Simulated assay, not measured.
Amino acid sequence: MRIPSNAHVAIVDGKNFTVMRNGGAPLEPKLDRAEQPDLSATNYSAGVRHQDNIGREKGTSTQLDELAHAAAVSEWLNSQCVSGDIADLLVIADPKTLGEMRHHYHSELEKRLVGEIAKTMTGQPTDKIEQAIASA
């Protein structure tokens, strides 16, 4: 995958969120850690979509917490894109988190989105993340 120089890379799962920047060439990403934003997961709107018999029987608090985290990440990324702090964005997230994040994307974020990778990469070494981007 081609990723512009200085593009932000959001690496997300149901509990973790890291933002890195591409300091390398578009076809040879070299990621540097930018920040690990502190988020408050307060948007539990996904719970409306996930009310089913199995969820009520087994309890969905963990799932709702993960989905609320995905919403919080999207809201943070939206604010950064709207303010102009993020010009280009690549999102790497596990499929469930990525699906929830898409429900919350602002149109400005969508304009700046250079790609998405539906894969769990949180906790992986930087070189593995760079390989996943290069091979996507």
Rank of each mutant, 00 (worst) to 15 (best):
A72V: 08
D85F: 01
D65V: 00
G24K: 02
V91Y: 01
I86Y: 05
E116I: 01
Q36E: 11
G99Y: 02
S74C: 12
T60W: 11
L109Y: 08
G47S: 11
Y44C: 10
G55T: 10
E100P: 03
L39K: 07
A41W: 11
S83I: 09
M20P: 00
R21V: 10
Q131N: 10
N43C: 11
P125D: 06
D88M: 02
M121E: 08
E116V: 04
V114M: 07
A34M: 07
V82M: 08
P29R: 00
E108R: 06
A25W: 06
T126P: 00
P26N: 01
G55W: 10
S135G: 02
L31T: 00
A134N: 00
S83K: 09
G59V: 09
M101D: 02
A132M: 05
D13P: 12
E116K: 06
R21L: 06
A34R: 05
T97G: 02
A34Q: 08
Q36P: 00
H69K: 13
S74H: 10
G14D: 07
E130V: 02
M101F: 03
V9S: 04
Y44P: 07
H104S: 09
K15N: 13
L90C: 04
T122M: 05
V91P: 01
K96Y: 07
Q51R: 14
I129G: 03
G14C: 11
P95G: 05
Q63L: 15
Q124C: 11
E130S: 01
D94M: 05
A7W: 01
D65G: 14
E116C: 02
R49W: 14
T122R: 06
D38K: 08
E100N: 07
D85A: 10
E110R: 11
S74V: 05
R102Y: 04
D85N: 13
H50F: 15
A25P: 00
K30D: 14
K30P: 04
A68W: 09
V19A: 02
N78Y: 05
H8E: 03
E66N: 15
